[in-house]
Write a protein that binds this DNA or RNA. Structure first.
Lengths: 106, 106
DNA sequence: TATATGCGAAACCGATCGGCTGCGCAAATT
DNA sequence: AATTTGCGCAGCCGATCGGTTTCGCATATA
């Protein structure tokens, strides 16, 4: 089983879950309400994300709140750093990216 | 066929190819020398990466040089920016969220 | 011209993915 | 005590993945 962070974010549902959870910790049922798949499928996605150390759990009675371990996302950023370094000019940080994107908007 | 950039970088071989090519454009045969898989498999990876608009081709005689389209990598950075924003301006709001959640619990 | 080389497309195959249903368990509610 | 609710696990299944081999084509080279 591979289970690294890049494989974790390859699935669009998992990416959406990450964004959802980033705002506030949620239970599997609450998350499932945002998608058209079963709670069990959500549960499996949560397990995969947890195995990648992307999530933390907080038990409250019989409810489990999943929250994003934001630090783990930095690993992606670190990988991207390779390309920033290689192309000293071409690849700059997000603030510049967003700036140019906004300006492009006719 | 899904074929988005996140699925493209999910495979470790493809990530390695991207790093390799980032330094300098290379032909499929030259790339294949760095791996333990056949040139045809490399060729397929190159096709997938190309379909995601991550690569550009430059024909030279019967050789094809593949080079990285570095701009495309920014898409990952833009996605990551969601989380940077949430954690920047979101922390003070997080207290409020948890507060309302607890009150709802009735 | 005949042969070697660089390349991509297609067919095949085992492994994995991502849904699903059907459990069982523990906590909460009645 | 009985039922409902929240959850994870296991098994099933069609689709996709990522490797392979085989092949055909175009471009060099003998």
């Amino acid at each position: 089983m591979r289970r690294d962070i890049f494989q974790a974010i390859a699935d669009p549902t998992r990416r959406a879950i990450l964004v959802l959870i980033a705002v506030q910790a949620m239970t599997p049922n609450a998350i499932a309400e945002h998608f058209d798949i079963t709670r069990q499928s959500i549960s499996r996605h949560l397990r995969i994300l947890s195995e990648c150390d992307l999530l933390a759990q907080k038990q409250e009675g019989r409810e489990i709140y999943y929250e994003l371990k934001i630090d783990k996302m930095k690993e992606i950023d670190i990988w991207l750093d390779q390309f920033r370094k290689i192309t000293e000019e071409g690849f700059q940080r997000l603030d510049h990216v967003l700036f140019t994107l906004k300006n492009k908007k006719k």
